[in-house]
Design a protein around this nucleic acid. Structure first.
Lengths: 96, 96
DNA sequence: ATCGTTTATCGTAGATTAACGATTAAACAA
DNA sequence: TTGTTTAATCGTTAATCTACGATAAACGAT
């Protein structure tokens, strides 16, 4: 009968997502990607008064949490929001 | 005319709330308080396989983020969810 | 007044985070 | 081929986090 619902994200999973978003820079990256749909790493770097390596680290955190996707295009990397994951996250928060 | 909306929580504020919720134990504390409305510190401690001092630290994090309120009642402390703040938080996430 | 209970705080150790500059790797341009 | 650009990774440092046991403070009970 399959009455079993999809397990609605554990506290551990949700904690990881919260942690990924627990830095203002990472929130701003998400907001930016939400607004412009996609962009090159360098453009994101140029938004912040931070070094390239630091921004790259933040992007890595978000990527590892599944919130963004990065696609290599030649020497550049194009980032975009993972809208599925982002919506899953927002739904989980709404259900808290 | 007061068309100016209430500033909708900065990235810094939101990051602090995310950080407060970035640990599974703290999420579970919130869920518990949401469910039972209020309870004594000792009851929360007994839920987790953690020392009293560690749980007390987690409660402090949540208190400092404004997500819970603690009221001293004799030698005990009664904790409850700060529903206003919690709803503000959820609204902010929904608007992301 | 003393004792037991409850909870917050202190001090500490180990892990993790955030920042940086330097380096590396990959791709394109000349 | 050589040089330039782009972005990831490495290594480091300082700060913060998580956990613990020990202690202190506040109260109620005897």
């Amino acid at each position: 009968m399959n009455t079993k619902p999809i397990p609605p994200i554990t506290s551990d999973d949700l904690a990881k997502l919260f942690k990924a978003l627990s830095h203002p820079t990472r929130i701003k990256i998400i907001e930016h990607l939400k607004a412009i749909d996609q962009c090159i790493c360098g453009e994101i770097v140029s938004i912040f008064p931070l070094s390239q390596s630091t921004v790259s680290q933040h992007l890595k955190s978000l990527r590892e949490a599944g919130l963004i996707k990065g696609e290599v295009e030649g020497p550049k990397t194009c980032y975009c929001l993972n809208r599925d994951m982002f919506e899953t996250f927002k739904r989980a928060v709404a259900l808290l």
